[in-house]
Amino acid sequence: MAFDALPPIGMGTFRLKGEEAREAVRSALSLGYRHIDTAQMYENEAAVGDGITSSGIPRRDIFITTKVWFDNLRSSDLINSLQRSLQLLKTDHVDLALIHWPSPGDEVPMEEYLGALKDARREGLTDHIGISNFTCPQMDQAREILGDTPILTNQVEVHPFMANRKVVEHAQKLGLTVTGYMPLAVGRVMEDETLQRIARSRHVTPAQIAIAWSATRGVIPIPSSTRPKHQTANLDALKLRLTDDEMREIDALDRGDRIADPDFAPDWD
């Protein structure tokens, strides 16, 4: 089937390698995940592809996202790198190809790499295109460059300690879905007293509360849990309906605690 939109939760694969990546992907798909998120920079596309093919789930039922690294943003490099990603993933297309980071210092003009990404879509290498780690002005610029070509998502860091409100709201205003990476703040949500208290009252885990908070905001979470028990809990979190009071309590935890902030990052909003 062709996906018109992102599935409500994804399996993130950042930091997963080799057999661990293969098994995590295979397990996630067997439990009901249908969105697998990887990237050229993760150096695990081959293992992710193995996990997908060994899962027994038909390729047409799986939404695969990969991301083009910033050293592949020149036109010819971008197309070639995506073709290489497809070989590693053992598929003839991905469902979504993202620009992983805006070109550092605008070394490669946005017109060039978004134009190449648009070409990749026209050539059938990807069904959808999108961006990642783009600021509000960069989203506006991308929208202007691409015109009628839809941008499916902006994938950015979102968790209770980094709500990223300005970017999330601007993206949604532009009609972009927001995908939130690191939704569990690399495990830090488990240690927060507010999240622990809300979780206890509902007989769930703080991780499930954090995922439900993202989903309630219309953000697609992509946790990278490897254990089947945690993967199942993440799926079950989508069934939670947080109250307005609970949402306000979690919103108050936002302190702009950004985890992914490399030296080549854009000037954040």
Rank of each mutant, 00 (worst) to 15 (best):
D71L: 08
Q40E: 02
V94G: 02
L82W: 11
T126C: 15
L125N: 03
G18A: 15
R121T: 00
E123S: 04
L78Y: 09
F63G: 00
A21M: 13
N72M: 07
R59T: 09
R34L: 12
D50C: 14
L31K: 05
L29S: 12
M11L: 15
I52R: 03
D92I: 08
R22K: 15
V108A: 05
S30G: 14
R60K: 15
R26P: 01
L89Q: 11
L31T: 07
I79S: 02
H128D: 04
Y33D: 02
Q83K: 13
A5F: 11
S103H: 11
G12D: 03
K17I: 10
Q138E: 12
A39M: 13
P58D: 06
Y42M: 06
G124L: 05
S132A: 12
L125T: 03
L73F: 11
P137E: 12
D140L: 12
D92R: 15
A28R: 10
K90T: 11
R15S: 14
F14R: 03
G56M: 12
Y113P: 00
T135W: 08
A142P: 11
L125M: 07
Q83S: 11
N133F: 07
K67A: 03
P102M: 05
G124N: 05
F14E: 06
K67Y: 01
F134Q: 04
S103P: 12
M110I: 02
Q87H: 09
S75M: 01
I64V: 14
H93G: 01
R143L: 10
M11D: 07
D140H: 07
F63V: 05
H128G: 08
D61R: 09
G49Q: 08
M11Y: 09
T135C: 09
G56A: 12
S76N: 11
D37F: 09
R74M: 02
N44Q: 05
L125K: 06
D4F: 04
D119L: 10
L86N: 06
I64Q: 00
A24N: 14
R121Y: 00
I131M: 10
Q40G: 07
R15F: 13
C136F: 04
H93D: 00
I64C: 00
I9Y: 07
T53K: 09
D119S: 06
Y42T: 05
L125H: 08
R121I: 02
T13K: 01
K67N: 03
R59S: 10
